[in-house]
Design a protein around this nucleic acid. Sequence first.
RNA 1: GGGGGGAUACCAAAGUGGCCAACUGGGGCAGACUGUAAAUCUGUUGGCGUAAGCCUUCGCAGGUUCGAAUCCUGCUCCCCCCA
Length: 405
Amino acid sequence: MSFPSVQDQLTVIKRGTVEIVPEDELIQKLETSKKTGKPLTIKLGCDPTRPDLHLGHSVILRKLRQFQDLGHQAILIIGDFTALIGDPSGQNKTRPPLSTEEININAKSYLDQAGKILDLDKLRIVYNSDWLGEMNFEDVIRLSSKLTVARIIERDDFSKRYNNNEPISLHEFLYPLAQGQDSVHLKSDVELGGTDQKFNLLVGRHLQQQNDQPPQVCLMMPLLVGTDGSQKMSKSYDNYIGIDENPNDMYGKVLRIPDDLIYSWYELLTDIDEKELPEYKKKAESDPRNTKHELAHHITQMYHGETAADEARRYFEQTVINKEIPDDADVLSFPPGSTHRLLDIIAQAGLTSSNGESKRLMKQGGVSLDDVKITDKNFELKIESGSEFHLKVGKRNFAILKAEN
RNA sequence: GGGGGGAUACCAAAGUGGCCAACUGGGGCAGACUGUAAAUCUGUUGGCGUAAGCCUUCGCAGGUUCGAAUCCUGCUCCCCCCA
């Protein structure tokens, strides 16, 4: 196996990376690997409690993919055993454990989605129940003796919860140990994680040293800021863009991010060449509108291809900029001569979740028929033979109403 | 084991017998403005109903009362202090 030069590898590895602990060890490992032709073992743990991957997850998955492309051995750990605990990192609550079936279903769905980013043919996939599930109580006690309480409660999320009088269950303390044990078992050279994983990654290093192994290098990626522009992308904040999301939504959502996110998204989410990044930084400031369009197109293209991305741009221009009804809007047919309350039509089309919501929207001017706002909640629509109406509810729900032929 | 405090809508947090579908803030949604946003301003934020009104909701289960988120009983969960 021949690898690119250490310098070239480093350039790729360091893109977007927040911290490498310690960097000189990484360089050493890369040098040895190049000399001996032996790939490094790169470990990434995934949490099968959340089946839906979003662009936030893609940051780290892309980093793993880069290691794959450099010729190293990527290992994806399905944390089916650690899911019994639920990673307390960044949480302010204890997580409810999932059942085994749920975890299995989620793990499968995770792989389906991660396959869009990783090279599955070269990926080694392991389940940590294979070794963690084999440990008996004595093993656990021995393992727990390797970490002090002082060390663990100095962790930000724990100390915060503790000081806020929020509950912390004892088993949550075991999470970092379990994750660290994964590193020992796999003899990993590098472990990837978000910045919120720093503590867990360092415990892995610590445990490997305790087991007379060369300690892993910890590589931290930033947490992608979500579409709201303030918090990390996360399903629970509803500021995410799913990897599986349809092209139109993906494009529209990217376009709605705050301007000052543009550059970091370019850096973390696209495969634009490192050398071109500074140029994009300038463009993001001088011409945010077009640069963001380009970003939206680029990201959509990565997951859905060129044609779909073009189509998504067109859809956006049509529906949002020109405020026209999309070509593929649902069509509802009514017998000619019949009369219907608009309220009922909206309900029938499933454009809102309740009649109350429909009434509210109408009152507030959020419902229009052929570009005319309908504010009377009792508005009745008569369908004549051959008539056609364009119905818009809220910012982006549409339907075409037609007379039956 | 003992003592004290707490559980309210998406989140935070008022309310302590009728004026409570429940103050307020955040978030969300909608409108105006825009570049698609952000910022700002406005409105809105349980369900059904054209409406009057009805139904469901304040940890869970019962009870008192004409009437309960508010009082009583039991239960569950959480936090703090002491041991």
